[in-house]
Design a protein around this nucleic acid. Structure first.
Lengths: 333, 333
DNA sequence: CTGAAAGCGCTAACAG
DNA sequence: CTGTTAGCGCTTTCAG
């Protein structure tokens, strides 16, 4: 009994043909005479032969694997990206090599460089500064960046954070709110744009935006930031949070502190995570289409691998999702 | 200018040594004379040489990649498993090849078989029947199964679903509830055990368990199942849902239907997903330690790859997490 | 249509 | 310490 898995040579011997023939058969590269085909099929079946993808990759130079580097799989924003990317990948017979860098700045670059060596292309989500991403162009593999980079000419797909911020501010304004605050996450590459969008909108109405910072893009950070925002001076009537997780944590804590939502405070987030809908009050947010971002990024990469000309940057449209966490400002008693 | 990436031979030539020397240097396999080491370092730096992991893998037979097959990355239970597995993998210099089978029974086996060929070992989560999993033993790669299989001798890690179900029923009983129902997901391999646990507990108290079924392990399915459970005959005083997602969807809908929670109904789930805490009322659940399952599975696999003897099956302890969605039964008016 | 031969980039004995 | 020599399992010209 053979201990080792059968190789192409075993099949060739068993079928009485050359290895080249077996190779061509496995790849459906051409047609065969009936007897040869029959023997081939028989031998392969008999031996339980499966071609070794590694050996194949070494020659063809393609692994049919796409590297996907994200910051935290537990953040629904990234979860959706993975979902979308996986779906498209599967459909095109690619597999995902996933790396969750756990928001660890140091490990990010070496991890991705190693990743790039084992795949046909990479999709990267990063918190690096724009000017610190030049190394990505030296990966010698097609790269698609999640989030636009104005400085490097790396193909990318992003959502319009500026517009999203603007929309949220506009919505709050429409509801009659005047004292609007922003609870951000400064380490994010999108934080500034979201602020700019909201700020611009408020400026047009002659109002200012009061900016606070959470220290992580998480429910815990939102919870932690609540008291200083709500119990300090200038308590806002409405709050735009950097993302839904922060908003959810913040709301929970605000309720605990005795505030009524949305009567005492309207709250919004970004991302439209699946659970915002199940919070009470259900969270108003802006859908950044993260799943579609994953799909789009994967599609772009696959196109690039197929030699199609680069489509440059793709920007997805944000979509406001109004639920119960924002409400018309109550009249003064 | 070279178009092609430098190979070990280029380095050997540039440093005036043999390829074997370069290979040993790259793998830190031994010490070198100062001049050789200097030339090596210089040449590698100069050429920007990086060893090709594919070629290496083909010879050593190890890819330092672990395949992870899950059913739906969007389900927090699986998200946590990926998180845990990724953490341990990174720590041991392994990378995850992820496949989200999207609850697609047909694709599952072929997908995993293809996956197994490209990795050193696989961690599998499946909805297959126990007796339909024999093919996994023929993968010729170490396998760790998520969820125990009594029939096949596949190493596995799981949580004690029976005990978890029992705990929940006990908790509800303690709160004075008598009419307790279960809203399950029959396609799951754990559904029956959870029912058995709850059923056993209730039987001891001379009570019966009213079993309903949701059609997916999702919030939507929970929402959909709500009216038939709540507006039909024998409305329960307490409900144990197959998982937190179903519970969350159910609660939201119950609220919409005008029920008060937890006064009119106590609700529980399984998994302790991150958002149960932020729902109102916050969800009582049982923590199945999914992240630890991912870690443990990965650790087992790495041990197996290191040739350590198989530790067999590992069962993690469930932990009851009581929050506001369950409350003492109100006295009859 | 089929086969022989030449490697892909690297490692693994075994010599020196 | 360093080099020589075989390949790993497969694809790919290029003849027949």
């Amino acid at each position: 009994m053979k201990r080792t898995t059968p190789t192409i040579r075993d099949v060739a011997a068993a079928a009485g043909v050359s290895v080249a023939t077996v190779s061509k058969y496995m790849n459906g590269a051409q047609r065969f005479s009936a007897p040869v085909e029959a023997r081939l099929k028989e031998a392969i079946e008999q031996l339980g032969y499966r071609s070794n993808p590694l050996a194949r990759s070494m020659i063809t130079g393609e692994t049919r694997t796409i590297g996907l580097a994200i910051l935290d799989i537990r953040n629904p924003y990234f979860t959706n990206i993975v979902k979308g990317a996986n779906r498209i990948a599967l459909r095109h017979d690619y597999t995902l090599l996933l790396v969750d860098t756990e928001e660890n700045q140091e490990r990010e670059q070496p991890l991705i460089e190693a990743l790039a060596q084992r795949v046909d292309g990479v999709i990267i989500s990063s918190r690096m500064q724009e000017d610190a991403m030049e190394w990505m162009t030296k990966l010698n593999k097609p790269v698609v960046l999640l989030g636009r980079n104005e400085q490097c000419p790396i193909p990318s797909v992003s959502n319009d954070s500026y517009l999203a911020g603007y929309m949220l501010a506009r919505h709050l304004l429409n509801q009659g709110h005047r004292r609007i605050a922003y609870l951000g996450f400064a380490a994010s590459r999108w934080d500034a744009e979201r602020i700019r969008g909201a700020h611009t909108c408020l400026s047009e109405a002659g109002l200012k935006l009061d900016v606070h910072d959470a220290h992580a893009p998480s429910t815990l950070a939102g919870k932690a930031a609540c008291s200083s925002v709500m119990l300090g001076p200038d308590r806002p009537e409405a709050l735009i949070c950097y993302n839904d997780l922060i908003a959810l944590g913040f709301m929970k804590e605000a309720l605990t502190l005795g505030f009524r939502l949305p009567q005492d405070l309207s709250v919004t987030g970004f991302d439209n995570v699946p659970y915002g809908e199940y919070a009470v009050p259900a969270l108003t947010t802006v859908d950044l289409q993260s799943e579609k971002m994953g799909e789009t990024a994967m599609l772009k990469l696959i196109d690039a691998l197929a030699g199609k000309p680069d489509a440059g940057h793709v920007t997805l449209e944000p979509r406001l999702v109004v639920r119960e966490s924002t409400a018309r400002r109550e009249e003064a008693p």
